[in-house]
């Protein structure tokens, strides 16, 4: 944690869920990409549909996922084990990490997998703090992923599925961290203190 934030490994992650309540709703798919500042490594990116029989609540399409995608779903435990390895000694980065982590930890627990990220970083909270410190009024919708990205001049992405959003989140994280730390050897602990 005392190490410079740039020496650290991060995993930017996004979930697709069937709803907003981790107690009743399911994780449908997961996407992540490994970030080693200043790089996002597309070779260490993964996307997996993890529910074969989702509760779709009568909706034929969730997050653009169709029945045939679910038929091709992967074994959840296998995917979670892979994620556990990737998260070893890495910082989990999400846009609204509290939400994703609630789903993820419940999901992992149900499959007897332990996820132990070194720490968690929330690009949403970080952005909210930053804007508040600059005395900005936080307009409705101003903390959405796309809106945050826009403030850093990051491109608009068309697709909204877990991996694209994970990549978008990873890029946002790099933009935030570089803007905050500049050239200085800011420690990971320091960076996380804004969460």
């Amino acid at each position: 944690m005392q190490q410079c934030w740039r020496e650290q490994r991060y995993v930017a992650l996004d979930l697709e869920t069937s709803g907003l309540d981790p107690r009743v709703d399911q994780v449908l798919a997961v996407g992540w990409i490994v970030v080693e500042p200043p790089l996002l490594d597309y070779g260490q990116a993964r996307y997996a549909v993890v529910q074969q029989q989702p509760d779709l609540k009568q909706s034929p399409v969730v997050h653009g996922l169709l029945q045939r995608d679910f038929r091709a779903a992967e074994d959840a435990q296998f995917v979670l084990q892979h994620l556990a390895e990737v998260l070893e000694n890495a910082v989990l980065v999400c846009h609204h990490v509290g939400f994703d982590w609630q789903f993820l930890s419940a999901f992992a627990k149900a499959h007897n997998v332990r996820l132990k990220p070194l720490a968690k970083f929330d690009t949403l909270t970080f952005e909210a703090q930053r804007l508040r410190m600059q005395q900005h009024h936080l307009a409705r919708g101003s903390l959405k992923l796309a809106a945050c990205r826009q403030r850093y001049g990051l491109p608009d992405y068309q697709a909204h599925q877990a991996l694209t959003d994970a990549i978008a989140c990873g890029e946002l994280f790099l933009a935030q961290a570089y803007h905050y730390a500049g050239r200085a050897n800011v420690s990971l602990r320091n960076l996380l203190s804004y969460n």
Binding site: P37, P38, L39, L40, D41, Y42, G43, A45, I167, E171, L174, A175, Y178, H179, A181, G182, R183
Partner: peptide
């Protein structure tokens, strides 16, 4: 090709 790419967030500090 795609999974062989890397992306860098390029800014004045790096």
């Amino acid at each position: 090709l795609a999974p062989r790419c890397k992306a860098v967030y390029l800014n004045e500090h790096n």
